[in-house]
Computed example of a mutant assay.
Amino acid sequence: MTPQILAALAAVEREHAVRVLFAAESGSRAWGFASPDSDYDVRFVYVHARDWYLRLGEPRDVIEQMLPDDLDVSGWDLRKALRLFARSNIALYEWLGSPIVYREDPAFAVPARELIARHFQPAAALHHYLGTARTTFHEHLSGETVRLKKVFYFLRPILACRWIEQTRTQPPTAFAELVAADWVHADERTTIAELQHRKQLASEADREALDPTLAQWMRDQLEHYARIGPSLARRTEGNLDELDSLMIALCDR
């Protein structure tokens, strides 16, 4: 799909008179547990010519396209992206950490990745991942049977919570890196490996009973991170001047 994705990004540039600074895969393909029929979720950051930002009004700052072959292409204008970046936006941080990158301007990507550490807010990030895990558990994993894919939609955010608990840093985007961390126990890795093997053999619609021991472990994890979340101190806000400088430098190129 890479040629189609690159063509779609080039079309965006022509049609909207923008320059794509960064484009990467997000969602299950970036995490590493996509199904064969999973969509391609391409997320990108783009910049307009400098004069576009000198208007009194603020035109639409999002570009969204649904294309053939299950290709979902969506991007944020640079000013919008940097405003969200300053507020510790997890989605944007995950794009920058994606293992599948389609386009990358080093003038944007390199400093942006370096600045994550100064703007990352552990308490807010843990709240985000815990909320995702909790919603997945109650909506998809509390019935008599479950889809294995949804088990991984719980495991990834809960292991991201553990990463934050241990390091106070942005978790990696790839699920394999979360599983490989030193604080993931050997028995947990064994269980995850078995689940991955079963998922590879199952079709998207297959359902099975959730192991009671695993279900209890999930409830224990939710309770644990709900308990420790408030104890994570909020960091001092990052310096907006450095983001302003990045914005100016990229508009001037």
Score class of each variant (00 low, 15 high):
104 E>Y: 02
24 A>E: 08
45 V>G: 05
232 L>G: 09
65 Q>F: 08
127 H>Y: 13
100 I>Y: 11
39 D>K: 03
68 P>I: 03
186 A>W: 06
56 L>V: 12
8 A>G: 11
25 E>H: 01
10 A>P: 15
102 Y>N: 03
100 I>T: 15
211 D>V: 01
140 H>W: 12
42 V>P: 04
232 L>I: 01
149 K>M: 03
100 I>V: 10
149 K>I: 08
68 P>D: 01
111 P>I: 05
242 E>S: 14
11 A>N: 11
224 H>W: 10
92 L>I: 04
203 S>L: 15
229 G>Q: 14
8 A>P: 13
51 D>P: 12
171 P>R: 04
233 A>C: 10
74 S>N: 13
53 Y>R: 01
221 Q>C: 11
163 W>A: 02
31 W>R: 09
38 S>R: 04
15 E>Q: 10
67 L>G: 09
60 R>H: 15
10 A>K: 14
165 E>K: 02
204 E>L: 15
25 E>P: 00
73 V>N: 05
148 L>V: 11
87 R>W: 15
199 K>T: 10
241 D>C: 11
244 D>C: 09
76 W>Y: 15
142 S>N: 12
219 R>E: 08
169 T>P: 05
24 A>Y: 09
103 R>E: 14
119 H>R: 14
240 L>F: 09
110 V>N: 07
25 E>G: 00
216 Q>L: 06
215 A>N: 02
220 D>M: 05
55 R>I: 02
2 T>S: 11
109 A>P: 02
77 D>A: 04
171 P>T: 00
99 P>Y: 02
220 D>T: 12
146 V>L: 15
141 L>F: 06
139 E>F: 12
57 G>F: 04
50 R>P: 04
75 G>T: 02
23 A>L: 04
164 I>L: 07
243 L>I: 07
34 A>D: 11
186 A>D: 14
132 T>M: 15
225 Y>C: 03
121 Q>S: 08
126 L>T: 05
90 I>W: 07
76 W>I: 14
159 L>V: 00
206 D>G: 07
19 R>Y: 12
142 S>D: 13
238 G>S: 09
60 R>T: 12
86 A>W: 12
220 D>W: 02
44 F>H: 08
241 D>S: 13
210 L>M: 07
16 H>S: 03
40 Y>W: 13
158 I>H: 01
210 L>D: 03
147 R>Y: 09
10 A>V: 06
71 L>Q: 08
137 F>G: 02
87 R>K: 15
145 T>R: 09
18 V>Y: 08
81 A>W: 07
248 I>P: 06
50 R>M: 01
10 A>R: 03
236 T>R: 15
38 S>L: 04
243 L>C: 01
146 V>R: 13
117 A>K: 03
26 S>W: 01
46 Y>I: 13
224 H>N: 00
200 Q>R: 05
31 W>K: 13
95 W>D: 00
102 Y>W: 06
177 E>N: 03
124 A>I: 01
232 L>P: 05
248 I>R: 06
68 P>R: 03
147 R>C: 01
1 M>A: 15
229 G>R: 07
158 I>Q: 00
97 G>N: 07
55 R>A: 15
78 L>C: 02
217 W>K: 07
237 E>C: 10
173 T>G: 04
51 D>S: 13
109 A>Q: 05
61 D>S: 11
170 Q>T: 13
98 S>Q: 06
141 L>R: 08
113 R>T: 07
